[in-house]
Design a protein around this nucleic acid. Structure first.
Lengths: 155, 155
DNA sequence: CGCAAAATCATCCGAAAGGGTGACGACACC
DNA sequence: GGTGTCGTCACCCTTTCGGATGATTTTGCG
């Protein structure tokens, strides 16, 4: 968490320094102060939104209520939302995060895309993947997806 | 979480203070522009964070899920054999061989395993894969499998 | 608070996958 | 015979994956 602030400081400082350095040469002459301010505003607003999104990432409480329902007819219902087999997931020791990444793997995303989607580094995604694969007894992501579907962990 | 915002604010304030302090020594004349930029930056960074917090505020989703227990197999249906959508296959120009390789990919096999299974070289498998991926608009095998299932080409 | 689990990130390295190109033979069709 | 498609295979190159390992941070819980 401190790292974000650090990044912010660095980026901000660099930005300001750059602006200070360049403004007298390129910007101020032909552009107004308002434009300069707008540029800074947009940049910092974007960064702030990113930071806000990042630090409030997913704090979700899942309460699973197991209810036995008689024979759902496949293809009948209104695309009945998929419900992962939490029991099996726990038995395999698969964490929620790992399952989340697994579902993105099943959607055909690359590690990099998953990393971007979840605001984490590619290395983290790889770690989660490796662990999930190990728990599923899979050597490849295609195999992991297949296993996940077989076990009712993925739709 | 408030802590981060606090730290951020402190760092931001420090940044402004530093800027103000330094600018007084070197850029006294144009200091109003610097101050203006810094203020705008801080303001909009704060605004961005606030916005980020706002739009992801209700991340604390309490999900109550009802686990549907799949119907006990009545033993009646003879596991209705899957029939690929030949029409769509032809429309996409996917050959039978490519679909065959694709199904093995979907089973989680590696190219080498597929090559062994089909008594062809690994290069051949890769060629078929590439062509099939191109026709499916997929960049990865996981994506290809997903597309194949969506299009009714794979079970 | 202190501990354990989980999440995050990094680095190294080898293997697998994917893209591109070119080539060759078989086979069908006109 | 010429043409086109399909299957087969090879080479080169880049990207991606996966495994192993270690470290740090965050978080939930007793």
């Amino acid at each position: 968490m401190k790292r974000h602030v650090l990044i912010f400081g660095l980026v901000g400082g660099l930005l300001v320094a750059t602006l200070q350095y360049t403004q007298y040469r390129f910007i101020v002459i032909e552009h107004s102060v308002e434009l300069y301010g707008a540029l800074v505003a947009i940049l910092f607003a974007t960064f702030g939104i990113w930071l806000g999104l990042r630090i409030t990432r997913r704090r979700e409480t899942i309460v699973v209520k197991e209810v036995l329902v008689p024979a759902p007819e496949p293809g009948g219902g209104p695309a009945s939302a998929f419900l992962p087999d939490t029991a099996r997931q726990q038995r395999l020791g698969i964490t929620a995060r790992e399952l989340e990444i697994l579902s993105l793997v099943a959607r055909g995303l690359s590690n990099r895309e998953i990393a971007t989607e979840l605001f984490v580094s590619e290395n983290t995604v790889k770690t989660h993947c490796s662990r999930a694969f190990a728990k599923l007894g899979a050597a490849r992501r295609t195999q992991a997806v297949r296993r996940g579907k077989e076990l009712g962990l993925l739709p």
